[in-house]
Nucleic acid binder design. Sequence first.
DNA 1: ACCATAAGGGAAAGCGCTTACATTTTAACC
DNA 2: GGTTAAAATGTAAGCGCTTTCCCTTATGGT
Lengths: 334, 334
Amino acid sequence: MVTINDVAKAAQVSTATVSRVVNNGPKVGAKTRQRVLDVMEQLGYRPNANARALASQRSTTLGVVIPELTDPFFASLANGVEVVARNNGMQLLLSTGLQSAETERQAIQLLIEQRCEALVVHSKKLDDATLLEFASQVPGLILIDRYIPAIKNRCIWLDNMEGGRIAARYLLSLQHTQIACINSLHEIDDPRLRQEGFEQILSESGHPLSDQLTVRNEPTLKGGELAAQQLLARDTPFSCVFAYNDAMAIGAISVFEDNGFKVPGDISVVGFDDVLISRYSRPKLTTLHYPIQEMAESAATLALQFNGSESTESTKCKYIPTLVKRESVSPEQA
Amino acid sequence: MVTINDVAKAAQVSTATVSRVVNNGPKVGAKTRQRVLDVMEQLGYRPNANARALASQRSTTLGVVIPELTDPFFASLANGVEVVARNNGMQLLLSTGLQSAETERQAIQLLIEQRCEALVVHSKKLDDATLLEFASQVPGLILIDRYIPAIKNRCIWLDNMEGGRIAARYLLSLQHTQIACINSLHEIDDPRLRQEGFEQILSESGHPLSDQLTVRNEPTLKGGELAAQQLLARDTPFSCVFAYNDAMAIGAISVFEDNGFKVPGDISVVGFDDVLISRYSRPKLTTLHYPIQEMAESAATLALQFNGSESTESTKCKYIPTLVKRESVSPEQA
DNA sequence: ACCATAAGGGAAAGCGCTTACATTTTAACC
DNA sequence: GGTTAAAATGTAAGCGCTTTCCCTTATGGT
């Protein structure tokens, strides 16, 4: 590969001047600049980002850790970070955590080794202590979808509990009283918090959530199908269900319909996340919008400025999901 | 950040020795190694990947260029590359091309500047000449979903025409004769080739594709809906449609059903790509499986070995889509 | 004991840049 | 034309590593 030296020689200037041209720095005469530019073009010069990063002590990469790329939810998250990277002329370095603490740790470490300018981390498996440790080592590290009080201004998270409340209020407002809940069985905060908020409102309304109508399963399409079957097998009537996420909701809907229940006619279903498929499904899914891309963008922006100055405490950290009414919920018509 | 020098000093060895330990190199005694390891641990040493890349002239990053992250198809592609990266202890550097020639070019250039060890590029907008130019500059550059004869062993592509043929044969085998086609209006090869293969078989069978039953639109859910409406408005009866991709297929299905046609009862629909949503849709979509993740893995592997030695011509470059029969197609029952 | 040999470890020269500082050129003014 | 300040360019010291030699010790054979 042609180096800055080759360019310097060919253009009969010092490497310093070439460097200035490359970085659009000042203090370069118009003629010289043009000559250097021409030589660069002609030689096909591509500055070595590694050397640049090393010499300048700053890099043009933005790192992001997500569990997996193929989940549309995380793809949106990565996308949000990518948008910010692009807007700042940076590159996206992506590592997947694959749902295991050890891979999550490795992913973060690798990104640190790459000396990313900033890091947006989605970690559910690593414990607070480990994350705090990383955060203390890396200034531009921001956690997304996670809340750790000690570094609360470096966390961007969704108010899951409020999400549960919103769903509950909505269902109650439509006169539903026999309410079911399909939750994830993963041992993370989200399922717990969503259900907690949900139950809270139901209890307050005098229609507490019945254990009979609460089931857990994998937070996937398949898991939703199984959960729906369990629910049906309980033989306790219900007119609506609050699902942990859109995938489970859609899985559940297909089982309900296969069993002769119309959605939303006989059973209303509300999902969570509002990922793309909720718009593709039939009926289109009523769900809680999780503004993940927006959150990711804000996380990345925050990460970038955190790295620079420690100021600007103004960023919004807590996001509230919003209800998106589509076609999978109707008033109770008993 | 603590550097190799700090470690060397603390462990009372030279940086060369530390380097050897880090790289698991030979020529370092067991005791020394352990001492260095301890110091590294204690100081929280993280080798600087940029410096490493610079000094060793090889990097641990694998670059990938895709149009966008949020499209599940491309997410799978990126995922395939990520898998290979992970298996080789490397990192994924991702750039999106955003469907424009200029951004595609920039994306590639940026990755070159990062000195990725290998590059998997999905480009539809850049012309052959530009791509050839890049390919000649970067040994480890592989094109995916694209075929350029001059560098055919560095291309991994799908036989779109054969895909069209397979769809056509299948539909014909079910006695369909009034056949429609919903295609993408993008000016790239894929739509053209798929339709070409499709038409070829139909013509051979004596039931050539009618212009009346061919419509084009954006290759999206919305585009599929619009296309279906156009088709319906044509007032020419048809019993099945071959859609450009799953999104269009699903969009079309919803319009058909909204207009009182049962799928597959009245109208059969076959999609293309077999992305996740095709399994979430109702009815589940019969479609042509595009083994994009597998192709991406193979592309990344190829890219990596190309970079090393120029040998191993054995890689499979052409992939054939396979028919996945699900629920959106039934025999003609006229 | 003696020397050959191998094994462990160090010195130092880069890798391709950036950048503070020094130097030269140019332009501007009286 | 001479003086200066400003503008343009060059010099060179790193950035944090890797890696080639080279040197110092053990080791073992005789």
